[in-house]
Design a protein around this nucleic acid. Structure first.
Lengths: 210, 210
DNA sequence: TTCAGAAACACCCGATTGGGTGTATCAAAA
DNA sequence: TTTTGATACACCCAATCGGGTGTTTCTGAA
């Protein structure tokens, strides 16, 4: 079960730690990247068995990286590695089709076991987040309506909002009317429990959605 | 310049990374701790030449750890190692008498050099932090022309903006009129080179001002 | 003393946001 | 078949924001 692994994390300390941990146990770290863009290039060119991707990267969100990869590549296993545990992020990850959601403060041994499991073909969610995931999957199957959760388009809109775009500009960009954007934006506020643009963007940013 | 070093960090990955980096370059990691309490015990018993301390620990702040140590021990060098850059934290660290303030996303090589410098008796502030520290010291000494720089009140206003407050609310809170807040806010936009609230808050957040 | 410039406003105005109600379409469930 | 819901709008309106001009007051330098 030797696996070629790519690490995408902007903290070089974490890179070093991961590589030390993985190589020590016979796993092959084929490449490392510090930004989302570099990570995309690396994954596309190396086609590793597994990519470990940090959520918070300097240029883009790790989730976006996963989405990009999944557009053209269903084979490479993806796992996000993050310090935070957030409902919306977990859901976005599952929707994107990642095989693992791992927390950085996990003991090294558990982390290693999780990675080995993913390489072996299993999907691994950190135990502390499994509850959320299961509940969400239940709702998905039976009622289909999974209210209160931000979908990918919501996150896209939040990203544009965070760049200072107006509703009108967002509407033109997404080929929707300004009125529709306003409705969607209000929905986002309700789901995030905030009452204006700045709060929404800050919430999203803190939760690693951007 | 062989130094005995203690690491206090709750992320085992970072511990592993640091240890690999340091031992690889002939430095001696004498001990590691995952909590502030453990860290205090370890530093007091081992009396290392340098303690690298994470700011965010499960039981207490790394700054508190430094303060505790400094109560009885002026000799052990202390350096905080953190992912976040906060002006207030920097200020507190300098007042506590730490020798280093290092950011986790620094390239490994620079990190290593910084640590070697600290062991050699120099005090090292991360370059991105030094600016703030110097500016702060300037303002203390003289009323030198510090144009184009956000002062403390600007940052306070940005903090309130980031929490979703309206200009009116900010004005009431700071005992200023809404019109004055508007003028100040526009000044902030000009200095940050942005054109609306969301952008300003994002800029400030990215620059560690919040 | 006079002058320059800052700080703290007032007033104005168009653009945008926040929030509500209402509607046409379409697809899936009852 | 009917009904439900989700989606993508339109219209409306008050509040707020973005940005400009102009006034007063105070302080420090010429």
């Amino acid at each position: 079960m030797t696996g070629r692994i790519v690490i995408v994390d902007d903290h070089e300390l974490v890179q070093i730690g991961l590589r030390a941990l993985l190589t020590e146990h016979g796993l092959d770290v084929a490449g490392q990247a510090a930004t989302g863009a570099e990570g995309l290039d690396l994954i596309r060119s190396l086609k590793p068995d597994l990519a470990l991707i940090d959520i918070r990267l300097p240029d883009m969100s790790g989730i976006q990286v996963c989405q990009e990869i999944r557009k053209t590549d269903e084979a490479t296993r993806l796992a996000v590695l993050t310090a935070l545990m957030d409902k919306n992020v977990v859901h976005a990850c599952i929707q994107t089709g990642v095989q693992g959601y791992l927390l950085k403060d996990l003991p090294a041994e558990e982390l290693l076991r999780a990675i080995q499991n993913i390489l072996a073909g299993k999907a691994v969610l950190d135990p502390t987040v499994t509850g959320y995931a299961l509940k969400w999957l239940e709702m998905r199957q039976e009622s289909g309506a999974e209210k209160e959760v931000l979908d990918l388009r919501d996150v896209e809109i939040l990203r544009l909002m965070a760049q200072g775009w107006s509703n009108q500009a967002i509407g033109k960009y997404l080929h929707l009317s300004e009125n529709t954007i306003k409705a969607l934006v209000n929905d986002i506020y309700r789901r995030l429990g905030v009452k204006n643009r700045v709060e929404a963007v800050m919430e999203a940013y803190r939760h690693g959605l951007l």
